[in-house]
Design a protein around this nucleic acid. Structure first.
Ligand SMILES: [Zn+2]
Ligand SMILES: [Zn+2]
Ligand SMILES: [Zn+2]
Ligand SMILES: [Zn+2]
Lengths: 171, 171
DNA sequence: CGGCGACCGTTACACTGTAACAGGCCGGGC
DNA sequence: GCCCGGCCTGTTACAGTGTAACGGTCGCCG
């Protein structure tokens, strides 16, 4: 869809969150613990889907994931990926970026109540997940005032990440 | 897509924002003023698209709008609706609900810098647009701290609106 | 064994969004 | 007037996103 970097990170401005194989292993371990505790099935397809999303440094569409999971002669259909993604998003292992129709690994291991803020860079396509108790509080106050009982929250900011600023000329 | 009420409002719990023909007329007037001031063209298709979105009390998909704009023998293609919606969203007359792939009329006439919070009811499908300077501030602080330069913001809360609470049994 | 439930493969389909090209309309410049 | 440019819209075609429905497999349990 968009032709940004294959990683979403910038060698001269590394982010602070885990990345690559390390993050992937962490997420898989978290998933296995979670499945163990709740009596859920962390199947091979779900694990492989999680690995693909975690290995990529940028949001991936469901069809991209299906393509990466497919091998010559062993095709994985997008619908299967969607089901795996349902499981993974329900349990907070990956997040859906509504404004991009794409999925990113969770970078925080936040509890169910905490909601994330996604910073999406227009230029390089990277997505950063941050948690802010302050935003949470002001959101809660506004919702309470409106008499609205929240179930899920989407906060996505599109703009320019720190690394991409200061090279407007460097095209 | 979803079979909620045709209006999104509840006779026993009216909302506080303008609604129906009144709101529609307001929005059209605002659009005409805006087009006048900026030298833009508020064409018939754009006006009719705005009217359809404003008349409906719930988020409408582009294809729904196209259907409502079509008359027997005079079909309006979705692609034309998308172009009209591009114009309307660019100038803040309607908003896109990313989590629903749908459009709602703007209820506030907010400036370019102010971003809205959308409260989307799971049960009745209504969407309420509110503005909170407090959320804005905490968001700005978080973004500044992350060195992120925002261009557009999406805040969508899904849950249960005030009117729909207290009738969990009243199915 | 026979049913049940969860998962997955497969097909088909609906919905969402955009690219590309052609025609109409309207203004300004010659 | 006439041509030319931009802007808008109609039309077709297509890519991308998401779900419904059915069937098969496997493990579990009465
Ligand atoms: Zn997370
Ligand atoms: Zn960037
Ligand atoms: Zn608005
Ligand atoms: Zn409601």
């Amino acid at each position: 869809m968009d032709e940004h970097g294959t990683c979403g990170h910038h060698d001269h401005a590394p982010h602070d969150h885990a990345h690559g194989p390390g993050r992937t292993a962490d997420l898989v371990a978290r998933a296995e613990r979670l499945a163990q505790d709740l009596g859920l099935q962390f199947t091979a397809l779900r694990r492989r889907t999680l690995e693909v999303v975690a290995d990529e440094g940028r949001p991936l569409g469901a069809y991209d994931i299906a393509e990466r999971l497919s091998a010559p002669g062993k095709r994985v259909a997008a619908v299967s990926v969607y089901r795996a993604l349902d499981f993974l998003t329900e349990h907070g292992l990956v997040h859906r970026i509504a404004s991009r129709n794409a999925f990113v690994p969770c970078e925080h291991g936040h509890g169910a109540g905490e909601s994330a803020v996604f910073l999406i860079c227009r230029r390089c396509g990277s997505v950063d997940e941050t948690i802010s108790a302050e935003i949470e509080r002001s959101l809660d106050r506004t919702l309470a005032q409106a008499g609205f009982k929240p179930a899920s929250r989407i906060v996505e900011i599109e703009g320019e990440c720190g690394a991409c600023q200061g090279r407007h000329e460097a095209e």
